[in-house]
Design a protein around this nucleic acid. Structure first.
Lengths: 156, 156
DNA sequence: GAATTTTTGTTTACAAGGAAACAATCTCCT
DNA sequence: AGGAGATTGTTTCCTTGTAAACAAAAATTC
């Protein structure tokens, strides 16, 4: 164990504990830790899964658009896609209409991988979020959706 | 500009847009982007600031405890502290009682840096969180605090 | 009280991600 | 048409963070 699990002694954080940026960082690390614990899904890493998932839902999507939506920088996207291509999960193709672009599609193997992973992934999602109650988790999700622009108007 | 700012075309995310882990990653990236935009504070980086801030509030705190609270791994903490030491902001000292440990204190220069930065940092914090309303931001912060274990009981 | 195990911090080697420069193509303007 | 500028993806280099092996010093166990 790296970060000791013994009860953490009191550390004064004062105003820092009300900082949105600080809390988001902590929360993301916590979610990651949970994901990679024994409880989490085996198989695709979260980044890879989300890329495959989105390609599956949007066949022929361009790298640039995919990156915008998932907030993955172009330089990094290039590497990610290369890995997925090498794994035989994704195929790239240059459309006639715009020969700079790259359109992404899943291979049969890729569709298979998403299918398998998604069950595991989303059923894990259901169980996540402790120590929040179910209602609180829903509320948190709703607020985050609004914050990141995936939902307009009031967070319900 | 890297990730284009033109309106993002519709991308089907379906269930993924309800994933807590996915949303937390997006939210953290968004907060980071905002922080490093023209609006954000100049000066210390968020990670450095939080380390200095916590040392200021907990003089003599040990590296291990600091890392636990800020979720910074030991290997990384070593590097971070070395940088801050080289900048003359932090001083390290091995306590007699436990000669493995390292106790951290701010130098005069370090205290000065925190003082200056914190005003900027926390007043920036006040303005952050769009497009959430003030109430929603407070609510979000409260839920995150509970999620990461900085608040017990019900998130108010 | 010596031997084993744990804790603490460091080092080293690596993976993830980003910034900047680049090449190819497309768009826009006249 | 033809150049100026923008967009798309790639490459290269760098920063940030992690994992694993290590050394020194407690703590534990017998």
């Amino acid at each position: 164990m790296d970060v000791s699990s013994r009860r953490i002694e009191r550390v004064k954080l004062d105003e820092l504990s009300g900082s949105l940026g600080f809390l988001l960082r902590l929360a993301q690390l916590r979610a990651f830790e949970e994901f990679f614990s024994d409880r989490g899904p085996r198989g695709l890493k979260p980044g890879e899964f989300s890329v495959l998932w989105v390609i599956a839902r949007n066949p022929g999507i361009r790298q640039s658009l995919l990156g915008q939506r998932l907030m993955i920088k172009r330089a990094h996207m290039t590497k990610l896609i290369r890995v997925l291509e090498d794994l035989g999960l994704v195929s790239r193709r240059t459309p006639e209409a715009d020969r700079r672009a790259v359109e992404l599609t899943l291979t049969a193997k890729g569709r298979q991988a998403v299918e398998t992973s998604s069950t595991e992934f989303f059923s894990y999602e259901e169980t996540t979020g402790e120590p929040l109650s179910n209602g609180e988790r829903t509320q948190l999700i709703s607020l985050l959706q609004k914050y990141v622009g995936l939902r307009e108007g009031e967070a319900r």
